[in-house]
């Protein structure tokens, strides 16, 4: 049911962890529905220089979190903000239809982190 790419990111998730001195933190989802994604970003000169995640959720939730850290690394904030949940799913060679809604929230978490950074640096 999952693509090979999803399984690869699920089995070997990239950039798991937290950033102690993060420039911004984003969190979406809730434990009630079974998915929580939290993303930490480090921003220097408007560019994402480090990104980490922690996720409570199913295979799709973990894989989308993992791949978005690769997609966002090195991007400017404006570029990173343009990443959509749909683009994340496509980068994983698709997700099962039931997962598109509930477990495909990584882009939302990233945007939350960017918004948090902007708020802090008002």
């Amino acid at each position: 049911m999952y693509s090979e790419k999803v399984m690869d990111h699920f089995q070997n998730p990239r950039n798991v962890g937290e950033i102690a001195d993060a420039s911004g933190i984003g969190e979406v989802g809730n434990a009630r529905c079974g998915d929580i994604m939290k993303i930490w970003i480090k921003v220097e000169d408007n560019v994402i220089t480090d990104i980490k995640f922690k996720t409570f959720g199913c295979g799709a939730a973990i894989a989308t979190s993992s791949i978005i850290t690769e997609m966002a690394m090195g991007k400017t904030l404006d570029e990173a903000e343009q990443i959509t949940n749909k683009a994340v799913a496509e980068a994983l060679d698709g997700l099962p239809p039931v997962k598109m809604h509930c477990s495909n929230l990584a882009a939302d978490a990233l945007r939350e982190a960017i918004a948090d950074y902007r708020k802090r640096n008002g």
Binding site: F10, F56, C58, G59
Partner: peptide, 22 residues
């Protein structure tokens, strides 16, 4: 979450089930 536990078990060759929403 249960599904990620099941997927990990499947990678180890174990078939199980869960009551998670997924």
């Amino acid at each position: 979450e249960g599904e990620s536990l099941l997927l990990n078990l499947d990678m180890k060759g174990v078939a199980a089930s869960s009551g998670s929403a997924c």
